[in-house]
Design a protein around this nucleic acid. Structure first.
Lengths: 282, 282
DNA sequence: CGGTTGGTTGAATGATCTCAACTTGTGTGG
DNA sequence: CCACACAAGTTGAGATCATTCAACCAACCG
């Protein structure tokens, strides 16, 4: 009941289409025919609700929780979903689109992470109640707004949600450790290889091809994320291309020699499994 | 009740002394008179219990939860508390001593973090049920073993614990982000400055001097943590010393020019507040 | 007392950064 | 639809920073 308090499922900005497939396609208009298509997936938090019911077998669990219960919000390309320091009223489940996470830690504009469809956004700010990072859309995106207060109530009342929160936090921790792991690689070559493989897995997770995709972020974003310069990224791409490991032209990426990249990124490319937090517990 | 099921508070290895002050002193025998002494602090999880009671005002909250309810375990210097892949039966609350966290991600022996007294250990492994990292004691240490199963029950039954778990996870996330933040600094100088300040804050948190302390880890550990070589650390120390920023001789550290280090570590040294997870919610 | 580990220092090499010029791509308005 | 302007990306050359290999020192321990 607490979760259902927010019943106005449509707002001026939200006006979401009923079928998520159509939305997906329309939003990625600048993407040249991804190999795999995402078909009507539910958003992350819906998966949560379902999982809670399934894993808990508790009759009182809120079976009615569905994506449509939450307000959706559109963020257009280059728009911001949240700014650092803002009050955290919602967690966000990214329905489609991609976002970059900007930290103001030492650079004032440091890319701390990227968020893909299915990711839950804002966990790291839950304790303080204020957004720790700025969130910018890399393309037109849509999120579900999950009211924090209602979420807390739900967790308190339905034990099934605790496992889910655990899983979500664990996923967030994983993500943070993975970044640290990437950054701790000495050579740029390895960091970049690890980054490409990570991206690849993320795409695979949401049903796209893992070997052909588009970079929605700029070289500057990548450089910031990997703690290096734009030029180095550019050179690295050139090198990978002539080595036959990849074919990267502009923002189009084809991974040609995955084993080569994995060897670079070290051994088995042990960077977690790249499963989005909210889906990991299926 | 669930939490109290583990009532045998002494085991062969545990045999803890009743007063924690005495324990502290005896354990840091190779430490030359730290400026500040820690007096009879409760261990992290005790703080948890108290907080649960205080914040929740719920009569049924387990007020009786005290540190003595949990088995204590000693780990001697260079001993291991857990190995990666092992089943996670307990979370550990570090009562005294320090540990290093070793990841096998790409280096097979990469220092991923350090744990100080009051820290809660093992959160990142809670979701998988297997230890993600190896834990090695940098000095003789003692932990409280917090049975995972009992902990989960407690969280389910006493809503007050949820806030605490939230805080704990949030602390763990913070720690991970901080490491990523340190690693994302371009120059070694900045990374090392940030590391020193982080250590300093950690010491301050547990009641020690923030400007004079001992490094319990080797140069190799620091190098691994900061993703650089032993020699670079050594040279950096020499440089900081001649610059008058520090006086580091062997493992003895005096921070002489904190503003200088903070300027290096960028602006205000924004690396979170270094408050140990379990105490952060006081 | 020699072996071992941890730590420092020097010199040469190599990787990455910076600065700068240039090319390509993208979006906008006429 | 084209032209233009601006953002994004590439490439080159030199300077800088960090790594590596090596020798060496110091402390510790049996």
């Amino acid at each position: 009941m607490t979760l259902l308090s927010n019943t106005n499922s449509t707002r001026p900005v939200a006006a979401g289409l009923p079928g998520s497939k159509a939305i997906f396609i329309s939003a990625q208009q600048d993407k040249p025919a991804p190999t795999a298509q995402v078909v009507g997936r539910k958003c992350g938090f819906c998966a949560w609700g379902q999982c809670a019911v399934a894993s808990d077998r508790e009759a009182s669990a809120p079976r009615e929780i569905a994506c449509t219960q939450f307000t959706r919000r559109r963020v257009e390309k280059h728009g911001s979903l949240a700014r650092e320091g803002e009050k955290l009223s919602y967690l966000y489940s990214l329905r489609f689109g991609q976002m970059k996470v900007i930290g103001a830690e030492h650079d004032l504009h440091h890319v701390t992470g990227f968020r893909m469809p299915g990711d839950l956004i804002g966990l790291e700010s839950l304790a303080t109640g204020r957004h720790r990072f700025r969130l910018l859309a890399l393309e037109d995106s849509e999120v579900c707004e999950i009211p924090v207060a209602a979420l807390k109530d739900a967790v308190a009342q339905h034990p099934g949600f605790q496992k889910i929160m655990l899983s979500a936090f664990s996923g967030a921790l994983d993500e943070a450790y993975n970044r640290a792991s990437i950054l701790s690689m000495r050579s740029l070559e390895r960091r970049f290889a690890a980054f490409l493989l990570w991206l690849s897995k993320k795409y695979a997770c949401i049903g796209y091809s893992s070997s052909s995709f588009r970079l929605l972020m700029t070289r500057a974003d990548i450089g910031s994320y990997l703690a290096t310069s734009i030029e180095s990224i550019s050179r690295l791409i050139a090198r990978f291309n002539v080595d036959g490991a990849t074919r990267i032209r502009g923002r189009t990426v084809d991974i040609l020699d995955r084993p080569y990249l994995e060897a670079l990124a070290c051994g088995d490319g042990k960077l977690g499994d790249g499963i989005p937090p909210v889906l990991a517990m299926r």
